[in-house]
């Protein structure tokens, strides 16, 4: 079964183009300096339209997760984590954790992570791996 993939919109195109280029791109407000996610052409804190796209560090920590024991067919047969990570810049995003066993013992909350990109043709999905893992 084909992997469920995003269809970028004009407001999110820069994010997915960034992933394809190996960059995690966030937006921040020029007026209040708040970084935010998911992408939109205004600041969700102060409402300003003066926002810019920038390359984020790709550093994150594991904020919370579950391990799905009944995976969706496109995700394979083995149990896998569906996680939310907190980026070093502040915003959180949903993702998968790669490069380590999908077990409670290996997936420890607050462990340091870094972004990597999974190639799915037109789309590259940002996923995270343990630092030094």
């Amino acid at each position: 079964m084909d992997r469920v993939l995003p269809a970028p919109t004009p407001e999110t195109r820069h994010f997915w183009d960034g992933c394809k280029a190996g960059e995690l791109r966030l937006q921040r407000c020029a007026d209040c300096a708040e970084s935010y996610f998911p992408p939109r052409p205004f600041c969700p804190v102060c409402g300003s339209r003066q926002v810019e796209v920038y390359r984020a560090s790709g550093k994150a920590r594991l904020y919370s997760y579950i391990i799905n024991h009944r995976p969706r067919p496109d995700m394979g047969a083995a149990p896998h984590a569906i996680a939310v990570v907190e980026l070093a810049e502040g915003p959180r995003m949903m993702t998968n954790i790669v490069g380590c066993p999908q077990t409670p013992e290996a997936l420890v909350l607050d462990m340091p992570l870094e972004v990597t990109f999974q190639d799915h043709g037109e789309i590259a999905l940002p996923v995270f791996q343990p630092v030094n893992g």
């Binding site: 992997r3 469920v4 993939l5 995003p6 269809a7 970028p8 919109t9 999110t12 997915w16 996610f37 998911p38 799905n68 009944r70 995976p71 969706r72 496109d74 995700m75 896998h80 569906i82 996680a83 995003m93 949903m94 993702t95 998968n96 789309i123 999905l125």
Partner: peptide, 11 residues
Amino acid sequence: QGQFEAPYGVT
């Protein structure tokens, strides 16, 4: 949701 959550296997 389709862009930023569904791709990671949410059912």
